[in-house]
Nucleic acid binder design. Structure first.
Lengths: 207, 207, 207, 207
DNA sequence: CATGAATGAGGCTTCATTCAT
DNA sequence: CATGAATGAAGCCTCATTCAT
């Protein structure tokens, strides 16, 4: 159960257009199977079939099944980072309340958009060898949020960023999972908790 | 994709003392393997071996591997319910702030106590057939918290209970996973979010 | 694949009434399971359960599963022999045509009466070690029929007896299996073949 | 106890020459094991071993053990149908006596040729889910014989075909099983019964 | 490079049988 | 003797991966 092996990287960077297409098809197929059938449904043969390539070809592009999952995770994290980057740029110079509101909506949007892919992949990530790039991205995400909080004078910004992300995800994810569709109402509820955490007194009370 | 099958129940209730010991040993072994090696490490043969019984004995008590996991989940939920019951009784008549503080500590304690078992089991629960008892317990947990919140005048208490539980678990769980050991500090941070959610203004600000 | 081992005999002759009851209950349970669920449904534990005894007790009376089946087969053959004996006595001194007619009806009756038990048991018999008693009974059955035929001047009576039995069973069994319920019509059809075999010209033609 | 499931079909038709060889080897091995050791000897691992392929390969071509047996049965029935077709064409326009004689010899030949495979497979067929193709073939066989009988003015030709087939098989099969090798003598005995059944008076009597 | 046939370790489960109580 | 807990060999099957064509 070593957790220190080298993370599985894609075997080779696709040089040609066709190769790139195959590569992408495999990832898409894997993502699709994962969201539809869960982790146990993800078999290399099924992925190859869905991707319309032979099992042999699949192994040309990925050294192992884990490598596919790892790449899926990296993709997701990259996209997350991009979203957060965009959001951070957008709220630059705006008051903290506004920034927090944006962040929460962005998070909800992200979850809805990736429709459950995030859930399964995060589960699988736990049982994958440590991946440098993924960790780097996660660090960047924390850093971005921390910088944002720091610029508003929040103490221990990295700590706070960690908590904030967990708070938002922790509340949004189960609600969405259970079928909640009123995203704005959900966002407002999460906002109360987030602002409370940050010590920004909210005007009214639920009680 | 049926989710309506019969939930896997233990096959046969142990009548002799020896049987009870075997039964317990199997569950303990399974829990141990799950926390140490994750879902993929959980094989029936390994469970039997760790439990010090034959594979045949394992199948005397559980009709399938899933049934073991299902029972583990039920155990966890029952324990959760007990903890919450105790907590609810303890905070009876106390102010909401106090109740919330207790609830958060209880939750953290529970997580620490079950050391990650909760995480894996919740993941696995998603891919198991619907289990009436487990769902019943979860409902009772929500009901208890909802009643608590309701007694303090919180609006939409069931909704709030759902959010509160996710908030607490969502924040506590990753922090503990990452190795945080200052439980009191963690509790205080979660408290700020919780009180904010409930609209109970906190005195100071982080900023 | 030796076929020469000793046939499995019941472990001990039951001396007491209770023992006899248990012994019978086991055989009945086995017969029932066999007719209902076929050979694959016959497991020792299930037999014990149906018989209302513990698996340990079952093994007090029968040394193995095969022994149960072997006893079931012996039972069936004994009953067959009895039926044929009765029939042979009944047709004593009657013309051959009459005897044949009786024999056919008796055979059909026997099959209907044991409702499929005969089929399954005959199949199983092929894969059981040679059983002296069963073979002895089968010989006696042939002998009885042969004597009957001989008394009517049929040549090579043992050979003819063998053929006659197969003819009757071979025609009756599939027809009954397919659901034929007009036993008399079936008997008449078989009779034509039997009489033809024996060289007793039938009055009319099907054509 | 459903009998309405899909019949087990071979999983994947072999595209390469190597594949076809593997496919055939599996079926041959299964047939061999079945005739030598009976149903209980037929294990997937043994089949794979005898076929000289890995167990994985076996499951590339057959989704289950039952599927192998089902295919063996279909093979046998197809071959039977072919034999009967040839025989029917051959006796076209010939007198019924001649046709019957041919049919009986063909049947004996078929049994000898498939050396007991028929016996075991017919037994196993009872415990297999309904197979459309097999049933279709059986119907065609009956139809062919019925047409033959009908062309000779036999009443209720389908009924008669059913009886005739059972008569012939019912007599031939046990005799051959018991080791009879004088096929012509056997054929003549069966002929007497068959002609008797059809109402074609035989010249002499056994008596 | 693509293909897909082949591999085989290993997972789940059954069930005849033994044996301590 | 009865009980039923325990055993474990052995069967069925999956699926990640390799390799000849």
């Amino acid at each position: 159960m070593t957790r220190l092996d080298h993370a599985p990287l894609p075997k080779k960077s696709p040089r040609q257009a066709r190769a790139q297409a195959t590569y992408d098809a495999i990832l898409q197929a894997a993502a699709h199977i994962l969201t539809e059938g869960g982790p146990t449904a993800l078999t290399t043969n099924l992925v190859a079939e869905h991707a319309g390539v032979s099992i042999g070809s699949l192994y040309q592009y990925f050294p192992s099944k884990e490598a596919i999952v790892a790449e899926l995770i990296r993709d997701l994290r990259r996209q997350m980072l991009d979203d957060i980057r965009g959001m951070a740029a957008f709220v630059e110079g705006q008051p903290l309340r506004f920034a927090v509101a944006r962040m929460i909506r962005a998070s909800i949007h992200h979850h809805v958009h990736t429709q459950g892919r995030a859930e399964v992949l995060e589960q699988l990530e736990h049982h994958l060898p440590f991946d440098t790039e993924t960790e780097a991205i996660k660090t960047q995400i924390i850093d971005l949020v921390a910088a944002l909080l720091d610029s508003h004078g929040i103490e221990q910004p990295r700590h706070a960023a960690f908590d904030m992300i967990n708070l938002v995800v922790g509340m949004a994810h189960p609600a969405l999972h259970v079928g909640e569709t009123d995203y704005e109402a959900l966002a407002l509820r999460i906002e109360r908790a987030a602002l409370g955490y940050l010590g920004l007194n909210t005007s009214g009370s639920v009680a």
